[in-house]
Design a protein around this nucleic acid. Sequence first.
DNA 1: TATGAATGAGTTTTCATTCAT
DNA 2: GATGAATGAAAACTCATTCAT
Lengths: 194, 194, 194, 194
Amino acid sequence: MKQQQKPKYKQIIDAAVIVIAEKGYHQSQVSKIAKQAGVADGTIYLYFKNKEDILISLFREKMGLFIEKIEEEIKGKETAKEKLLTLIEKHFSILAEDHHLAIVTQLELRQSNLELRLKINEVLKGYLLLVDSILHAGIETGELREDLDVRLARQMVFGTIDETVTSWVMNDQKYDLPTLAPKVHNLLINGFGA
Amino acid sequence: MKQQQKPKYKQIIDAAVIVIAEKGYHQSQVSKIAKQAGVADGTIYLYFKNKEDILISLFREKMGLFIEKIEEEIKGKETAKEKLLTLIEKHFSILAEDHHLAIVTQLELRQSNLELRLKINEVLKGYLLLVDSILHAGIETGELREDLDVRLARQMVFGTIDETVTSWVMNDQKYDLPTLAPKVHNLLINGFGA
Amino acid sequence: MKQQQKPKYKQIIDAAVIVIAEKGYHQSQVSKIAKQAGVADGTIYLYFKNKEDILISLFREKMGLFIEKIEEEIKGKETAKEKLLTLIEKHFSILAEDHHLAIVTQLELRQSNLELRLKINEVLKGYLLLVDSILHAGIETGELREDLDVRLARQMVFGTIDETVTSWVMNDQKYDLPTLAPKVHNLLINGFGA
Amino acid sequence: MKQQQKPKYKQIIDAAVIVIAEKGYHQSQVSKIAKQAGVADGTIYLYFKNKEDILISLFREKMGLFIEKIEEEIKGKETAKEKLLTLIEKHFSILAEDHHLAIVTQLELRQSNLELRLKINEVLKGYLLLVDSILHAGIETGELREDLDVRLARQMVFGTIDETVTSWVMNDQKYDLPTLAPKVHNLLINGFGA
DNA sequence: TATGAATGAGTTTTCATTCAT
DNA sequence: GATGAATGAAAACTCATTCAT
C-alpha cells in the first residue's frame, strides 16, 4: 500500500515549487524535482512534455486556483471598490500563506527565458481580464470616473500589487503583507475615483 | 582616471546592449559581445571581472545617466506634482528613444539569475530614492497628503511606470509611450493627493 | 508446438519490419512495434527475450523463408549454372516483392550493434552454405573450374548480390531488380568457368 | 615544450580510429576520444562541428589517402587488368597494414545511423569513380568486353573486395589478405574478359 | 595591453525492461 | 496470458574564463 494519495501530476508540481523556492531556479534540476516528488526522473516525462512544461503547468495550475479563489470572493461584493479591495486582500493573503509559492512566482520564475515568460504572460491574462472587468463595472456604475483609461489603470493595479509583493518577498517577507491591502487599495482607488 | 573613462569600457557595454537586445539574454555569449565590440574575448576581462560584471556595469552606467538626466530636469520644477510628471515623462522618453535599451532593461536583463538581479536592485535604489525625495518634498509642502505611506507610494510609482513600459515593449513598442505620461501621472497623483 | 506457431509471434515480427522500414532503425522503439502489432509493450516480452531478440528472430524468420524458397526452386535445376541463376533470380525477386523487407535487411538492420550483426551473420551462414554447395557441385561435375577457391567465390557471389541489392535500395528501388539477374549471373559465372 | 607536432585535427581523428577500433562504435564517447587525443572535451568542438563530423571527417581523410595511394600506383600501369590488380592489391595492403582502420571501416562505422552512412557513401563515390574509369578504359582498349555493364561490374568489384575484407576482419585478420589479391583479381577479370 | 586557443564542468531526456495487477 | 505505469542509467555539447605569447 502506497501512501501516494495525490495524483502524480500535482505531486510533481508541488515538488517543483518546493525545490525552486529552496534551491533557486537555476539549481532546480529535473532530478531534484523528481527526488522531492518521490518518483523516478523518467516518471516526470510521463506527465510533462519537458522541463519547461513543468514550470508553465505549475504557473497555470497555481494561477488558476488564484483566480478561482479571487473570483469566488468577489462575487459576494457589491461595489467595484469592494471588489478591488477583495482582490488585493486575497492576492496578498494567498501569497502570504504560501511562502514557497511567493518566492517562486515573484523571484525565481522570472529568471526563466523569454519564451517561457511569454507563456506565463498568457496565463496572467486571465488575471488581468479579471481586473479589467472590475474596472469596467465600476465605470458603468459611475463609481469610477468615466474617462478612466482601463488599460493604464489595470497596469497600475497589477504593477503596484506586483511591486509590493516583490518588495515584500525581497525583504524576506519580514512584515505582514495582507495588512497593507487597505492602504494599497486606498492609493489606487483615489486615483481612479470619480 | 578610471578605466571607465577609456573608450573600450564603454565600447564593450554598448556592444553588450546591442547583442542582448538583438539576440536575447541567453544568446549573448561573451564571445559575441567581444566580436560586436571589435575586441578579443580575453580583452573583455581586462575591463570587467566577469560576465556578470558587464551586465551590472551596463545597468549601473545606463541607470546612472537615467537618474542624472531626470535629476537635471527635475531641478527646474517647483512642485512635487511637476517633478513627478517630469520623472515619468523623462523615464518614458529615454526608453522610447533607445529601443535596444528598453528591450534590455525591461525584458532581457530580468532573465538573469537572482544574484545579479539583487545587484541590479541596488542600483535601482538610487532611482527609488529620487522618487522618495519627490514624495517627501510633496508631503512637506502639503501638496501630498500627510499620511501618505511613502514606501507604498514609491512602489506604486515604480510598479506602475515599470509595468507600463514593459507592456509597451512586449507590444513591440507599437504605440507612443511618452504620450501616456500625463495620464499615468494623473492616475498616480490623484491617489496621493491631499 | 512452439510459440513461433502462434499468431502474436509473427504479428510482432511483421510489425517490426513495418516500423523499422518506415521509421528507421533508431526510431523503432519497442513501444512503437508493440503499438503497430496491437499489443501492450509488456506483451512483447512474453514472446521475445529482449529487443535484440526481436531483430534476430525477424532476420532468422525471413532468412529462413528466403533459403527455403531458394532451395525449393533450385531442386528442379540440373546444372550449377542454372542453380546459381535461380538463386540470384529468387534473391532479387523476393526482395523486389517486399520493399519493406528490402529496406530493413539492406539498410536498417546494418545499423545494429556489432553483437547483433555477428548473430545475423550466423543466420547468414545457412545462405552461404547453400552457395557453397552449389559451387562444390559445379566443381564436382566439371562445370566450374577445378581450382576455384570456393570461399573466395562465395564471397564474390554474396558480395556482388548484396552490393547490387543495396545499390538498388539506396536508389529508391527505381529500376527493376530481377531484370539484372542474368547479367549478374553472367559476370559471375564467367569468372568461375572452366 | 609540448610534443604535439601533429595538428590537433589529425590528432583527434587518429584518436577516434583507435578508440572506435578498440572500444567499438557505441562505446566511443566523445570524452574517450578527447582523452585518447590528449585534449579537453571542448577542444574537439573547435575542430569538428559535432560527433558525426568527426566520423565523416575520419572517413573522408582516410579514404582520401586511400584513393590517392591507389591512383598513384595505378598511373604506372598500362592495362586495365594490371590497374585492377593494383587496385585490389593496394586496397588489401593498406587495410592489412592498419588493423585499426580495417576494423573501423569494415565493422564499426557501419553501425552508424543512415544519415551518416549516406554521407560516407558520398565519399565512397570517389573510389567507385576510380573503378569505373579503369573499367571504361579497359572497354576502350578492347581488353574488357564491349557489352560490359559498367555499373554492375563496379558493384561486383566493390562488393567482392568489400566482402572479402569484411570476412577477413571478422575472422580476426587471421590469414594474409594481400595474398588473396591475385585470386580475387582472376575471378573478377575472367568475368569481365573479352 | 591585447590576443584567442584551450579548458572542463554540468544537465535534460530517452527508452528497454520490469512487475503488480 | 496481458497490461502499461514506472524505472533510472547514460552522453553530447556549451561557454565563461584563463594564460602563454
